[in-house]
Design a protein around this nucleic acid. Structure first.
Lengths: 242, 242
DNA sequence: CGTTCATTTGACCAGCATCAATACGCGTGG
DNA sequence: CCACGCGTATTGATGCTGGTCAAATGAACG
């Protein structure tokens, strides 16, 4: 649940606002004029914390606004009628979250922290205020939400491909997203389990294991538990060029 | 391509505006106060026509705005790196189109008419004007675009299910969408080919044929070429309840 | 009335799910 | 510091779903 009363106040250390946040080129303010970033900063709740396994919001709960992950990662889940989890997406630092509740004002997905997360929260009612005072923000949010559309098309593409191609693409996609945010693109930690990867990609977790093993045998990657190192990016890439 | 110079002027018959259009509860104006609908009506290009097989816009072309289908249907395509078509969605009368270009200002999908279509067009630059004068519109567009997100989650669900379940769900989904728009929910024409259905559902067109045959044998549906009649809706429905 | 494309139907087999057993990693407590 | 236990990951064996190839039938259109 989004609940600012559980937030750690940011006044205990140097105040971080949107204008000086290290994510300011990735997060909501991207593309906003500097003056409007200032206005945005006044409306955002910062330093919300969730531990691994805790929910950021639940499916069925009312939409409370848009969330920007500052650190840590999360998974976005949906459930089928039998209660089976479906991993809709993984959310990495600097990425936005919450669009699944904007249409109906009720979330149809659940967001769970995969490790300790720290996030900012732009409350829903403030979005409406901003839409009037800060027309640029509406545009930015609209573009961001349509970004999700682009991402979904990519996912559909993947669902037509072989299990090997899906895993290769998954690894490269995570790598890309991390590198945009300043992390190493060749060596990182997969914060999600094999099961969650399989669920996300639509393949069995055993298949994920087998393919990761195969990629190691082919010297494309080196894996130690959740730590992953890409040793032959071109080799991995060649999977979806064919 | 969106090009209002090829439009048939609406002045030749009784002027249809957003306020008296029979789709006004489904299209962009849904949820807008009446006064704002009037403003919207002034900015929309009406009566754009495309014949079967013609493109409404192409992937790679600049985003020109949001489109609302007044009649006819269309398919939204993407292409993989080998040039294979991927049917991203089918668009039915009263539904909106064009969000795939909003994020980057370049369309990453191609929209093709499946039969003669008549559509309205809200130009991109007018969206920005409206965002200032008509704050409600931004909200509506934002909600609509996030609707797409919800729809994509449903599609991901489908991609985990068996071919039979996918076809059953596809038929029921089309039925629902048509009935919302006042068409018969039990008898309608599938304007797309088996190939396109298969492409959309991620299965081979032969499999689509086989399953449609199977459903007929089980008395769930009656099919004559592209004409389809649902004879046992509950039976079809039971597919994704299990 | 023939040409062309869409659809149907059949036969075969590959990819991946599923089931099962084992190994590994990690935290807990002795 | 090691032993135990539980969850995650790996690895193997088997079978089914649905893809692919091929041929036949049907529909649309000039």
């Amino acid at each position: 649940m989004i609940d600012s009363t559980t937030s750690t106040s940011s006044t205990t250390k140097t105040a971080v606002t949107c204008a000086n946040c290290n994510l300011d080129n990735l997060c909501i303010p991207k593309g906003l004029p500097r003056s409007e970033v200032g206005e945005l900063a006044l409306l955002v709740n910062r330093n919300n914390i969730r531990q691994k396994g805790e929910a950021i919001y639940h499916a069925g709960s009312p939409f409370r606004g848009i969330i920007a992950l500052r650190s840590g990662s999360a998974k976005l889940l949906s459930f089928d009628q039998n209660g089976n989890e479906l991993v809709v997406d993984f959310i990495l630092p600097g990425e936005l979250l919450g669009f699944d509740g904007m249409s109906s004002q009720i979330h149809n997905c659940t967001a769970i922290a995969l490790e300790t997360v720290n996030y900012c929260h732009l409350p829903a009612y403030k979005i409406e205020i901003l839409a009037i005072n800060t027309p640029g923000l509406s545009q930015v949010l609209l573009q961001r939400s349509c970004n999700q559309f682009d991402a979904q098309v990519q996912k559909m593409m993947l669902s037509r491909r072989s299990a090997e191609e899906r895993v290769a693409c998954f690894i490269l996609h995570i790598s890309d997203r991390l590198s945009i945010r300043g992390y190493s693109e060749l060596e990182f930690r997969l914060s999600m389990s094999r099961e969650e990867i399989g669920n996300y990609l639509g393949i069995a977790h055993e298949t994920v294991s087998r393919i990761i093993h195969l990629f190691q045998a082919r010297k494309l990657i080196a894996v130690k538990s959740k730590q992953l190192k890409i040793t032959d990016k071109k080799g991995l890439f060649s999977f979806y060029a064919t």
